[in-house]
């Protein structure tokens, strides 16, 4: 009995998608292209800013987390856990609705960039920490034995080596951040997803709207992946030296 039902559904959905494709309005997409273009540009630069923020947050958190004493380490760990354990959407709303209550009124875009920086920063912190910890103990000892201070060791020995190992996972995190930035559409930031939503709601064309933004995200994804591959090749060359 279940079998005819299923085939029935299959037929229905196939028919539905066929009509969808038939009615798929490329013209509307072209018409909305300037809007998508603006959304894309916004997504790109807000992601760049957020990633810069994430790097800053991540470096500070990683440095705190690498301290021996608990005074800095414990708050850093607690923050990282809190961010990783809760949904980004919850964090975004927490800032969006929470900050005004504290009397801090910020434009949506700023709240969005702040949320992405604070969120992504926790992941970046772990990437940086893992990169630093991946450097063999003997490197630290060689620096210590030659009379380098902690700062000199970090700057001359540890960070240049950790940098190489962290580039690929950092680019991975950048890809995640670009996709996460879609959530900012929910607080009315005019980024790429928002453009898709507008097309969907103004013209009742969700397929057109969301297929188009998917295509743009794919474009960004390949851009970043290409960058990762390039850096990988560069690091691969440098890696032969290690």
């Amino acid at each position: 009995m279940a079998i005819p039902d299923t085939s029935h559904y299959c037929l229905l959905t196939t028919a539905y998608s066929l009509t969808m494709l038939e009615n798929f309005s490329f013209r509307t997409i072209v018409e909305y292209l300037p809007l998508f273009g603006q959304g894309l540009v916004t997504t790109v630069w807000l992601s760049l800013l957020s990633f810069a923020g994430a790097l800053a947050v991540g470096i500070v958190l990683a440095a705190m987390n690498l301290q021996r004493g608990w005074l800095f380490r414990v708050p850093a760990k607690a923050y990282i856990d809190a961010v990783r354990a809760t949904p980004l959407l919850a964090q975004l709303y927490f800032l969006y609705f929470g900050l005004p209550r504290l009397g801090i009124i910020l434009p949506e875009l700023v709240v969005g960039i702040l949320a992405l920086s604070l969120n992504s920063g926790a992941y970046v912190a772990e990437i940086i920490r893992a990169g630093i910890l991946s450097i063999p103990r003997g490197q630290v000892e060689a620096g210590v034995a030659s009379g380098m201070t902690y700062v000199q060791r970090m700057r001359l020995v540890i960070l240049p080596q950790a940098f190489k190992v962290t580039i690929p996972p950092l680019l991975g995190q950048a890809i995640v951040l670009v996709k996460d930035s879609a959530l900012l559409s929910l607080i009315a930031v005019a980024e790429l997803t928002r453009a898709g939503q507008l097309l969907a709601s103004d013209r009742f064309m969700p397929a057109e709207g969301f297929v188009t933004i998917a295509a743009f995200y794919l474009l960004l994804y390949y851009g970043l992946k290409g960058l990762a591959a390039l850096s990988g090749r560069w690091l691969g060359l440098a890696g032969a030296r290690t």
Partner: peptide, 20 residues
């Protein structure tokens, strides 16, 4: 101690050269 270490060379079993 940092100053004193500059007067003392240490050669490790595993060399510990800076690979970069």
């Amino acid at each position: 101690m940092t100053r004193l270490r500059t007067e003392i060379g240490f050669v490790f079993q595993s060399f510990n050269l800076y690979p970069h």
